[in-house]
Amino acid sequence: MYIKKILLAIVLIGLLAGGIFAYYVYQAVFSPNTNFESETTNVYIPTGGTYTELIEVITPVVKDIYSFDRIARRKGYVNHIKAGRFIISKGSNNNEIINILRSKNAPIHVSFNNQERLENLAGRIAKQIETDSVSLVRVFKDESFTKANGFSIESALSMYIPNKYEFFWNTSAEQFRERMLKEYKRFWNEKRVKKAKEIGLTPVEVITIASIVQKETAKVDERPRVAGVYMNRYTNGWKLDADPTVIYAIKKHRDDWDTVIKRVLYKDLELDSPYNTYKYATLPPGPITMPDISSINAVLNYEKHDYYFFVANIENMGYHKFAKTIAQHNRNKKQYISWINKQGIKR
């Protein structure tokens, strides 16, 4: 009888211990283990990240890092760390968190526009995805790639069509470039290529003129008219005489891209640069900025008219006065110069 009581006691203690252990395991696996007040939070795991690095990243996100660590080891996650951006919901348990980190790399939206150079584009992109700007500039300027795809270093900016795109945060520089090439080819579909050909331009030439239009006017509704002026000049063999190209040439000549030039002087028109359209009748070797899609479409669908000149309209700021003759233009220009002198703008 005494032995039976001992055995019964051992069984009961075992059951109690097992119950306690099971409860502990259940708590560790299925109890909420988040440490933030917002509905969700992002966890970024770098490419090639180790489990130790993961623990550093996840520690501020969870209440109990020790229970997370034990469950992560039990589930074999320690040796299967994946890079990316992962969205953790408030109240998630360790099991759910680990499952998300294993397989639910969440995409992000990457956007860019109006960058003057590949270096500026690289800086903009590096703020949004994992890769750094140095790596991006290197692949953007890879001459074997640009040449193989019909670009030069000067025209390579044309390949990056400004828009909002979906990427994984851990996208590499090479992967970003390849995706942009696909988007460029998708943008320049048969219809757009046909339109470009009908107006005597290649896609890169369209983007180059569009970049000038972009710089000339911020008014989307005015862009087809401004594009029409430049197409009239170009198709008739005139120099484009575009102030924004001179400003770009000055910046490039000085290697000073932060300078602000509000007024182009006569002496600036003498700068010997392929970007100076007051000196050369050819198009610049590439875009002087990244034009919006509205500017590209403005060139492809430019307004047919007889205007060859335009100057800022001081009576309707942001817009321009257009002229068919040099005499009419000079009258408009005189009014503008008088106004700009009164503003004290010398450079």
Rank of each mutant, 00 (worst) to 15 (best):
K4W: 12
K5Y: 11
L7W: 12
L7K: 07
L12S: 11
F21I: 14
Y23L: 12
Y24P: 03
Q27H: 14
F36C: 11
T41E: 13
Y44W: 10
Y44Q: 11
G48T: 08
T50K: 09
Y51L: 07
E56C: 06
E56Q: 13
P60G: 09
D64Y: 10
S67T: 15
A72C: 09
R73Q: 13
G76M: 07
Y77T: 09
Y77Q: 05
H80I: 08
I81K: 05
K82N: 13
F86P: 01
I87W: 05
I88C: 05
K90Y: 07
K90I: 02
S92C: 01
S92K: 00
N93H: 03
E96I: 06
I97K: 00
S103M: 01
S103W: 02
K104C: 04
N113C: 00
Q115E: 14
E116P: 08
E119K: 11
A122P: 01
S133L: 03
V134P: 00
L136R: 00
L136T: 01
V139T: 10
V139I: 15
S144H: 13
T146D: 09
T146I: 14
I153K: 05
M159R: 09
Y160M: 01
I161V: 11
I161A: 02
P162Q: 07
N163F: 08
F167M: 10
A173S: 13
Q175S: 13
Y184C: 03
K185W: 06
R186K: 13
W188K: 00
W188N: 01
V193K: 15
V193L: 15
A196D: 05
E198C: 00
I199S: 02
L201D: 06
I209W: 00
Q214C: 02
Q214I: 03
A218K: 05
K219I: 12
D221Y: 02
N232I: 11
N232P: 11
T235S: 14
L240E: 09
D241C: 06
D243H: 09
K252A: 13
D255Q: 15
W257Y: 15
V264L: 00
L271I: 15
L271R: 04
S273G: 05
S273C: 02
P287C: 08
I288S: 02
D292H: 04
I293F: 04
S294K: 06
S294M: 04
V299S: 05
K304D: 14
D306R: 11
Y307E: 05
F309W: 14
V311Q: 02
N316W: 02
M317E: 06
G318A: 04
K324T: 14
I326L: 15
K333R: 14
K334M: 08
Y336A: 07
I337V: 15
I337M: 15
S338Y: 12
W339S: 07
W339T: 07
Q343T: 06
